[in-house]
Design a binder for these strands. Sequence first.
DNA 1: GAAAAGATTATTCGTTTGAATAAATTTGAG
DNA 2: CTCAAATTTATTCAAACGAATAATCTTTTC
Lengths: 216, 216
Amino acid sequence: MVRDQSKLKNTKRENAKGTTRSKKREETSARIVQAARQSFAKRGFHGTSTRDIATEAGTNQGLITYHFGTKDALWRAAADNLFEEIGGRLFDRLALRQLADERENARESIREFVRFSAEYPEFFWLMVDEGKNADERLDWLITTHLRPRFNVLADYMLNELGYSQTDLPHVYYALAGAASLIFAVAPECRQLTGVDPLKKEVIERHADFVARLIVA
Amino acid sequence: MVRDQSKLKNTKRENAKGTTRSKKREETSARIVQAARQSFAKRGFHGTSTRDIATEAGTNQGLITYHFGTKDALWRAAADNLFEEIGGRLFDRLALRQLADERENARESIREFVRFSAEYPEFFWLMVDEGKNADERLDWLITTHLRPRFNVLADYMLNELGYSQTDLPHVYYALAGAASLIFAVAPECRQLTGVDPLKKEVIERHADFVARLIVA
DNA sequence: GAAAAGATTATTCGTTTGAATAAATTTGAG
DNA sequence: CTCAAATTTATTCAAACGAATAATCTTTTC
């Protein structure tokens, strides 16, 4: 029964990567994290039970205790996983293009951000779920993941989009909100307006709409 | 033990309004609904326990069963209460002014919507919390409260702001998102940017920012 | 002022939850 | 092949949950 891997003795066994055992361990762990990410995103931290996560991952609840210790730690692992995946894809998209027209360049970056928001509604769900209460999870989320990413985006907005320091929070949250909400409440949008926001052409229309909104 | 008032016999007792008893009943009920509104908004449906609500309302949990029956019914009562309050104030604000400059008229309406979003973050929280899962609560929320309000806003956007039918979902969710997110995640905004979005001057700045965004 | 009905509190019930522990199984090292 | 360690499953525990019921207190009616 190993609860904390950091306490493992530094034996020759530790560098046995790729063995059947450590492969299985990672696979199982990954399956749990994946299920946790889905559940936490869709139903929030409190709305998710560790048993449901285990079932969805096709395993036993005890494995969560074994691999992660607590529900809180599993939530952190799920967030880590999300941001790891996000980190690469988001910044691969932004600021890559160097079109002649600077404004069109900025617009395309915003379009990419909207496409990203459609692909990863979890990001927005997490932000809203945890951002409204000043607790320990929010602290961790900000210092570990949000601040570094915010700084990059802030740089981009200041230098490439030409916004002022004072405007920063307003641009950031207005853009994030305008880009993401429609995808975050997709079922509501479908039922309320009859339009499915996750259809390709609707995503593109929203991308263009928001891009032209912010860079007229 | 009265579980369902509609089943009460239609005696002369029913019109005893303003008596000490019925006054107390309404006061208690209102206190519970108020506490429920706060809790459901801040911690979501699943993150809220009926015991906590009762305690916060300064009463016993049994009273929730007595007055509302189930947690679900209490949630509906809380939502009713929120929308009742919102309904009046929101539409009092919109489309009231008739300035000479039509664009400035539209901008001021949007500013009012942003001020409203700062005052009632619950609206946004509810929308995101319930809008991401297609369940019975979402059905009820849409048919009972969202659709009528959406129709009014849609009219306003089509006729006053000059948007097209196709653009409607995009305008609606982009505006709602841009206007509300910064207030919905106020603790995060404070910690991440150092700016408190609920300060009067920040609200006004955001109002102006979003207004100029949408009506350039 | 007494009896009935209404409102409130206290207690209880069956489930579910997060977590811990025990038992069983699988794997790798010697 | 064997045995210890790692992993997985099964079981158990105390606490919290929504809900129901019982008991108590208050108000109204006659």
